[in-house]
Design a protein around this nucleic acid. Structure first.
Length: 404
DNA sequence: CCTCCACAGGAAGCGCAGGAGT
DNA sequence: ACTCCTGCGCTTCCTGTGGAGG
């Protein structure tokens, strides 16, 4: 028999995943109190104001709201007042998708189709479902600012006016946003009917992160399974980059996994350093792999000509190389207009940096550089069969190539 | 001060996919 | 089988523009 007692620093690894909601949240007492105060009205009067939470990623907006909403739901159960929590992860979709999601989550099954019905009809059905369930629905909506940017403020108007139309139920919207100022351009009629309260989540500093990590480490790892300084390093690395607690915990977990794989029972500084590199690469790989072909090809044209000192490209150059590569790989060529959009998307994903610059008479364009390790990116792209012919691609000088 | 480059990026619309209703 | 709905990727056509060179 093999040794079943395999060496590991972990005691309860599951507590280091994003889905885990801890029993107590440190450094978010104020926000939790405000949330509780507002949401308690749901149980008292059956309705409450809508709430907008602002803060950067990993500042505890999601955990805090979900935690609090859950407690309210539990409290409601005790008082025999039916409460539903609808969690809406960052929706890629539209107003229609949002209504369908709320309706289906409330119902607990897929009743409303995501296509085929008009937006208004979808809204009506969701409204009917809500009313038929006799419930107080807390709708937590992730990245509401992004949704607003894409779809406008109509959904807010609709949702804010839903309560008077409900006889037996009510809806309370909790919007979670990164951008503090996205409400600035709301239509006045939205502002007047929305009735919202704002809660701000400031980023954690290194000390607070340390605190959070220590608490979490206590339940996740065996005693003495973490070398001195590892937590502090983890907190420092995370605070410096983003102050993001979610990623800090992810980093700690990765360090533990690396230690585990190396057959160690103690997480050491070197594991933490390796973990940081790994996480960075993993994230990039995941994003690149799931890119649509055309985006991949655009990325390829940037990456495959970013070596040998020539590391800034302009849109025209990228497009020329792209066309060349498209011919070689047999992929349909898209227009430059479309290509600029894809370049913007890659920029937003953080895979490349593209910023506007003017060369005066030389025109106005974007300077593009890679934001990820070139060699690794090439390898990831080459995993795709379609790109095999590019393996030994020699960057050509585009028609628009500038002289340095 | 004006020009003019090499684009940025908005607007409209097209064809298709996926699904509902009839 | 047929009509109607929306989203998506894309094209076509277009107007707008920072700033070096004239």
């Amino acid at each position: 028999m093999m040794d079943i007692e395999k060496k590991t620093p972990f005691k309860a690894k599951g507590t280091l995943f994003e889905t885990f909601i801890p029993d107590n949240l440190s450094h978010r007492d104020d926000q939790m109190m405000m949330l509780t105060n507002i949401l308690t009205n749901l149980l008292h009067t059956g309705q409450s104001s809508n709430i907008f939470c602002y803060g950067k990623t990993g500042t505890g907006k999601t955990v805090t709201t979900r935690y609090t909403a859950d407690r309210i739901r539990f409290e409601g159960m005790k008082q025999n007042k039916n409460t539903t929590v609808v969690y809406t992860p960052a929706v890629e979709g539209t107003e229609l998708d949002l209504y369908a999601h709320i309706g289906n989550e409330t119902a607990g099954k897929n009743i409303i189709p995501s296509r085929g019905l008009s937006t208004q009809e979808t809204y009506n059905r969701t409204k009917d479902i809500l009313d038929s369930r006799n419930t107080r629905a807390i709708v937590i909506m992730e990245e509401i600012d992004k949704f607003y940017e894409k779809n406008g403020d109509d959904f807010l108007y609709q949702l804010s006016r839903i309560n008077p139309q409900l006889k037996y139920s009510s809806l309370c919207l909790i919007g979670i946003a990164n951008n503090l100022k996205f409400t600035e351009h709301f239509d006045p009629r939205v502002i007047s009917s929305l009735n919202k309260e704002d809660i701000i989540f400031p980023p954690y500093n290194a000390l607070q992160l340390q605190d959070i990590l220590k608490q979490r480490a206590k339940i996740a790892f065996k005693t003495h399974a973490i070398e001195d300084g590892v937590i502090n390093l983890c907190a420092a690395l995370s605070a410096r980059e983003h102050g993001d607690a979610r990623r800090a915990i992810e980093l700690l977990r990765a360090a533990g996994e690396i230690a585990e794989r190396e057959g160690e029972e103690v997480v050491k500084i070197e594991h933490m350093k390796k973990a940081q590199n790994k996480i960075e690469l993993d994230n990039v790989e995941e994003v690149i792999k799931t890119l649509p072909v055309q985006s991949k090809l655009i990325l390829a044209s940037i990456v495959f000509s970013s070596e040998r000192g020539k590391n800034t490209l302009i849109t025209g150059e990228v497009y020329d190389i792209y066309k060349d590569m498209a011919k070689k790989t047999g992929i349909d060529i898209i227009t430059q207009r479309r290509a600029t959009d894809l370049i913007s998307e890659l920029d937003m994903l953080g895979i490349i940096n593209a910023h506007l610059i003017s060369y005066g008479r030389g025109g106005r364009t974007r300077e593009i550089t890679t934001a990820v390790p070139v060699q690794n990116t090439k390898e990831i792209l080459l995993q795709d069969e379609t790109f095999h012919v590019l393996r030994d691609y020699k960057p050509m000088r585009g028609r628009n190539a500038r002289l340095l």
